[in-house]
Design a protein around this nucleic acid. Sequence first.
DNA 1: GGAGTTGTTTAGGA
DNA 2: TTCCTAAACAACTC
Length: 276
Amino acid sequence: MPELAEVDYFRKQWNAALGGKILKVRVHPHSRIFRGLDLKQMQRALTGAVLHSSTTRGKQMLFRAKPDLWLGIHLGMTGELRLENKSHAPQKHDHLILEQTKRSCVFSDPRHFGRVLFHEGKTEPKWWSKLPPDLLSDEFTPLALRDFLQRRKKSPIKAVLLMQERFPGIGNWMADEILWRAGIHPRLPAGKLTPLQTKILWKEIRRVCELALEIIGEDWNDLPDSWLFNHRWQKGGVCPRTKTQLVRETIGGRTTCWSPGRQKLPVFRNGHATKK
DNA sequence: GGAGTTGTTTAGGA
DNA sequence: TTCCTAAACAACTC
């Protein structure tokens, strides 16, 4: 479930715990979410530590605790963060619980695709510093987008938008929403976008990130019906702009929804797109 | 019971 | 080498 804005929403669920000391760290020790991690070391270090800040980058979350502790959380497909009261009895999928005097911070994930990372030290861990720049940062330029599309020119644009190395935070529904707004067919090879389409795509990437963070990231409000989101899974769903029937097919290994009314595949002749 | 799920990694083919 | 695709991971819902 969680993409950019949902991840930011979940990060903030632990806000009340910032400034508080962790009294106890409870875990399901054999959970897959701890793969590659020294669990005992993490429990030892976090016990007695004080959480002081949190941030996100794409779908990654980082919680920092004094002194010099870095806790990374990725929600995978079904993970979530929430608060429970102090004496919360761990449920089946509550893999990590940070217990404080007034509450418990819970990370639960039924499918175990999520992941916990941990580092102790003065300097940023590699797994955090190597993350690509935020899509709303100045570093994500139209030029950076154009270059990336050229490097992945054979892949359908839908598959390319899911690549976290360049588009951190974009997931399946955001990719479809962006392409729908930009009027670009999801199967169009990334290298075939015109300069104008590339420019529009850049603009819509920023816009969808911005709006989703405002609407979902703050209070998990419903997106307006003017978005594709509210129609994409409906049986017989209709494009809110063209009122034509939406189509669903697998592209890049993921179920993709688009509106044939406004997302058309150009016909290529001699390597050039011609008007249909 | 079977198919499908808003994520990521990896193996293997092109 | 580089790029791309499909499968695997695991549990739940329809």
